[in-house]
């Protein structure tokens, strides 16, 4: 046998049929990807696509009817230099977050501490207290809230029993935001449930050791309960702050979509909505959305950075 013939025989082995990457992937995971396809369509079509598009639109003027016009950073520049409503909406939103989040967390923790005392009928109370959280973001509750705090609403009827003439809470720029803060605090159920779960995780031995040491309930709360609950406080604070920045429905319903009186309930998201769907300034609205994302990201990042100084993890 010649060398040539050996080479000719060897050739078929050298060019053995190797399955393509795609066919290997398909044979191994194909059915799995097929089942994931609806999620991929939703993720790329309804999440990633709009995110990328809105980022692009934030650098354009776009009114839905004419083609988008590239304007560079003009939208962002306008926001910080020539738009008093942006500043007002930011102020209202920050006030809302600064007051509603701590109040809601304090309220939620107080109720959780009460419920954690092993009272009878606990599941019923828990469900009752959680109910507002399920209903709170709905249009119906916002409408109800509007009725409660109107000039001739139930709140003023109640105050009238004591001879107090209450204002029209939602029509008064000095009190309108506080009605929305009250509504947010009323929705304390979700953080309360999480606090309750956190309280259940604290070993009873620690309380017993503290009581043997003669610690009062107040001291036990500040020195044992609260420090051990800080991971839960941190989680709730982050979630509720993000929720606060995103808050939209109550302000929209109570102010009739205007943010009035005197822009006192002009939440950031409401202003964004107005720019997008009332004035059809989609480019500017997109820029507003990205600034909100940046603010929330900065807040969350700072919170995580500072957490090492006040959040106590067991391990």
């Amino acid at each position: 046998m010649t060398a040539r013939s050996i080479g000719a025989d060897a050739a078929p082995y050298g060019r053995a049929v190797v399955p393509s990457v795609w066919s290997r992937l398909w044979s191994a995971n194909g059915p799995g990807y097929l089942f994931l396809l609806p999620w991929f369509i939703g993720f790329f079509g309804l999440t990633v696509g709009p995110i990328v598009t809105s980022f692009y639109l934030s650098f354009t003027n776009f009114d839905l009817l004419t083609p988008a016009e590239w304007v560079g950073f003009d939208n962002y520049a306008r926001m910080f230099t020539a738009d008093p409503k942006f500043a007002q909406s930011m102020r209202v939103t920050l006030l809302f977050v600064v007051f509603s989040v701590p109040l809601k967390l304090a309220f939620a923790l107080s109720i959780a501490l009460l419920l954690n005392r092993g009272m009878r009928g606990l599941p019923i109370y828990r469900a009752i207290f959680y109910l507002p959280s399920l209903l709170g973001a709905s249009v119906a509750i916002a409408v109800l809230w509007r009725q409660l705090f109107a000039g001739d609403g139930v709140v003023n009827d109640f105050l009238a029993i004591f001879g107090i003439q209450g204002p029209s809470w939602i029509s008064n720029p000095r009190t309108s935001l506080w009605t929305l803060i009250a509504l947010a605090v009323w929705q304390f159920g979700s953080p309360m449930i999480i606090f309750l779960a956190g309280l259940r995780q604290i070993p009873v031995d620690l309380y017993e050791a503290a009581s043997l040491d003669g610690a009062s309930k107040w001291r036990i709360f500040w020195k044992v309960t609260l420090p051990l609950l800080t991971p839960v406080v941190f989680f709730n604070a982050i979630i509720q702050t993000i929720e606060g920045f995103k808050s939209f429905t109550p302000a929209f319903i109570i102010s009739g979509g205007t943010g009035n009186p005197v822009n006192s309930t002009l939440f950031y998201t409401l202003y964004l909505y107005q720019e997008a769907f009332a004035f059809f300034r989609m480019g500017y609205a997109s820029a507003l959305a990205w600034v909100l994302l940046a603010i929330v990201a900065i807040f969350t990042g700072v919170s995580f950075l500072t957490s090492r100084y006040w959040v106590h993890y067991d391990d």
Binding site: P203, D205, E208, A209, A210, L212, D213, A215, P227, H312
Partner: peptide, 25 residues
């Protein structure tokens, strides 16, 4: 009392654990 689980306060140092009862008093 010395507990089966030790019942040490996990967020306090050993010194703070030892001193807790005395500070309380």
């Amino acid at each position: 009392m010395v507990f089966q689980s030790y019942a040490l306060y996990p967020h306090m140092s050993v010194y703070q654990n030892l001193a807790f009862g005395l500070e309380t008093a």
